[in-house]
Nucleic acid binder design. Structure first.
Lengths: 140, 140
DNA sequence: CTTGAAGCTGTAGCCGCTACAGCTCCCACC
DNA sequence: GGTGGGAGCTGTAGCGGCTACAGCTTCAAG
């Protein structure tokens, strides 16, 4: 039996199990606690962290939000809204729309980069000649 | 007369003028020197850096490469190829293509994010209801 | 009871800057 | 020739979001 709870009652998790189930690195979990977006969990007599399903949910929330490109600061706000219970769904909706606009800007930037690079690469045969049109283009 | 060269002979630049003409922050120029992608320039008797047109060209090269999303490490390689003079244009071409592939991956990632966020936002009226479908979706 | 994995704290490093503090230097003007 | 003040100097610390250690302690299976 590897679990500390003997499969009875609500399951509790060590940090390793939490990491595995949430998909978040152990070091990162402790980091999240340090910066205050994960709560300080109870500890065993010996000082080891003990988590429950609530912690797991919160951590998954954070991971999925990160995957969608929210900053930890934005996530902190989202969590705060959720924690308070008194959030208006409208605020969350608004943040999401703002974030979508952000992402669109980034995509536009990257597309511009790609176009310029494609043009440069197209002018460059890639042979052995000493003057490279790509380098020329960049220093001009 | 603000310039130190009296408009005769090749013009030399202080770090401030170099910054202005290259579009690169003064602090950043010194940083580039520290990490070795800009050479240590000659100094005045008093210890101030003195630049010339060559430095300006190199710095513009770096800035434009950064704008196109190359990392300083990639730029270091590009500069090394250019410095050696013995680069094959093919290597530059290859790096550029790899970088384009990188950018495409990033664009694809961002598009996925945007799609997911749009779907979540669409399910969210944004009203005052206590349960927010966006938050639900993220913790599930 | 032993042993080895898991967990603990605290610190330093990554990238690409940016921002200071607390100096020194340069040079235009009087 | 003096002086005032802007420009430049070095060195260090901070940002975000982790990651990687070193050097311990604790836990649980056998």
């Amino acid at each position: 039996m590897k679990h500390r709870d003997k499969e009875m009652g609500r399951s509790t998790l060590g940090i390793g199990a939490l990491s595995e189930r949430s998909g978040v690195n152990i070091e990162t979990i402790r980091y999240y606690e340090r910066i205050g977006i994960m709560p300080e969990p109870p500890r065993t007599a010996g000082g080891q962290r003990v988590y429950d399903a609530g912690h797991l949910g919160r951590l998954v929330f954070i991971r999925r939000s990160r995957e969608l490109g929210f900053s930890l600061d934005e996530i902190r706000t989202l969590l705060h809204l959720a924690d308070g219970g008194d959030y208006s769904c409208g605020q969350v909706h608004e943040m999401t729309l703002a974030h979508i606009a952000d992402i669109r800007r980034k995509i536009a930037d990257l597309r511009r980069m790609e176009r310029v690079l494609r043009e440069m690469a197209a002018n460059c045969a890639g042979g052995e000649m000493p003057e490279c049109p790509i380098l020329e283009a960049l220093s001009a």
